[in-house]
Simulated scan of single mutants.
Amino acid sequence: MSTPLVLRMGRIGYLNVLPIYHPLEAGILPHDFELVSGPPALLNNMMARGELHVSSCSCFEYACRPERYYLVEDLSIGSRGPVMSVLLLSRLPIEQLDGRGILISGETHTSVALLRLLMRDRYKLNVRFSTGPVTPAVRGATPPTAFLAIGDEALRLRNHPDYPYRLDLAEAWRDWTGLPFIFGLWVVSREAAEQGLFKTDPGALLRRARDWGLQHMDLILDLTGLGCPLSREELLTYYRDGLVYSLGQEELQGLRLFYEKLATAGMIPAPPPLRFFRM
């Protein structure tokens, strides 16, 4: 007898998605998925290789391989202003970074692409990028002049005394375009969908989980506060004001504009069509 297929769902290993995944991890909302946790770049690669059936995914990954995926409707991880967890930290004022090097984390594709766009088109700065682990470099003998930090690492390092100049990338995008910035999307494997592997709608499950998490924010704050560098009040601001979990018309405008700017800069071949999963 054949072994039943286990559907696998990718879960970014950052605090910002806890409102979505806690109800699934805690069994509050029953489901048939195996949850696989990892940084965005790892989950992107696993989705690209067909090792996951549903996953949170960087919007840059979707732009690179749109033929592989369907988008989940009305679900994203983004920001309408300061996001606090995607930061360029610098020893020098940002305008003095021309000709300097910036260390970037290898865990993210979208944030790096956004930083490249901001440096090139918003601030008109010619900078050099190198990739490597951020926290060890900051603690090392020759720390970088500036670095990009994301997720929980950014929350830990955001007030580092040696890096007094801070650029919140989501806030910089909003100032530049007037629109929200979408860092991550949720995608469904097109191959899995076409094979009929989903008996129920994974997007509906994820949206129910998001709604449950946002309706039980006191519990999410209790869970997040364990070992977190932010105070409870800062965490509430982070979840309530810093992040957006929907994908409405304004978020879609911001996403489409980002794709247009990436294509103009030659980072992707063309803006991808936005195709959504439907049962």
Score class of each variant (00 low, 15 high):
Val86Met: 15
Gly248Lys: 00
Pro82Ser: 09
Tyr238Asn: 11
Ser105Glu: 09
Thr200Ser: 13
Phe60Trp: 07
Asn159Arg: 06
Ala41His: 09
Thr145Asn: 10
Gly203Asp: 03
Val138Arg: 13
Pro143Arg: 09
Leu221Gly: 14
Asp241Asn: 11
Arg158His: 03
Ser76Lys: 11
Leu148Trp: 08
Ala172Met: 06
Leu214Asn: 06
Ala154Asp: 02
Leu87Phe: 09
Gly266His: 01
Leu89Val: 01
Glu61Phe: 01
Trp212Pro: 06
Gly151Met: 11
Lys261Cys: 05
Trp173Thr: 00
Glu61Ser: 05
Arg240Val: 14
Leu223Ser: 02
Leu97Pro: 04
Ser246Phe: 13
Glu95Met: 10
Pro93His: 08
Phe33Ile: 05
Phe60Cys: 01
Leu179Ile: 07
Leu219Val: 13
Leu221Ser: 03
Gln253Val: 00
Arg275Phe: 08
Trp173Gln: 00
Leu197Tyr: 14
Arg122His: 10
Asp168Asn: 13
Val54Cys: 07
Thr3Cys: 00
Leu89Lys: 08
Gly50Gln: 12
Cys64Pro: 06
Arg240Glu: 10
Leu179His: 09
Ala193Ile: 08
Arg190Glu: 03
Gln195Met: 14
Gly242Gln: 08
Gly50Pro: 03
Tyr239Trp: 10
Gly248Val: 12
Leu235Tyr: 03
Val112Trp: 01
Tyr70Ile: 10
Ser79Cys: 08
Val127His: 03
Leu87Asn: 11
Leu5Asp: 06
Thr177Ala: 12
Leu117Cys: 02
Tyr21His: 09
Ser76Leu: 13
Asp168Pro: 02
Met217Gly: 06
Arg166Gly: 04
Leu243Glu: 13
Ser76His: 12
Ser79Phe: 02
Thr264Asn: 07
Ile182Thr: 09
Met47Gln: 14
Arg65Ile: 05
Ala113Arg: 00
Ser246Asp: 15
Gly242Asn: 09
Met9Ile: 05
Gly81Leu: 02
Ala26Asn: 07
Ala141Asp: 07
Pro133Gln: 04
Asp222Ser: 04
Asp218Phe: 02
His216Arg: 04
Tyr69Arg: 01
Glu95Asp: 11
Gln215Arg: 15
Ser246Ala: 06
Thr145Phe: 01
Ala26Phe: 00
Ser105Thr: 15
Asp98Gln: 08
Arg120Cys: 07
Arg210Lys: 14
Met279Asn: 12
Pro229Leu: 05
Gly101His: 14
Glu191Ile: 12
Phe198Thr: 06
Arg174Pro: 01
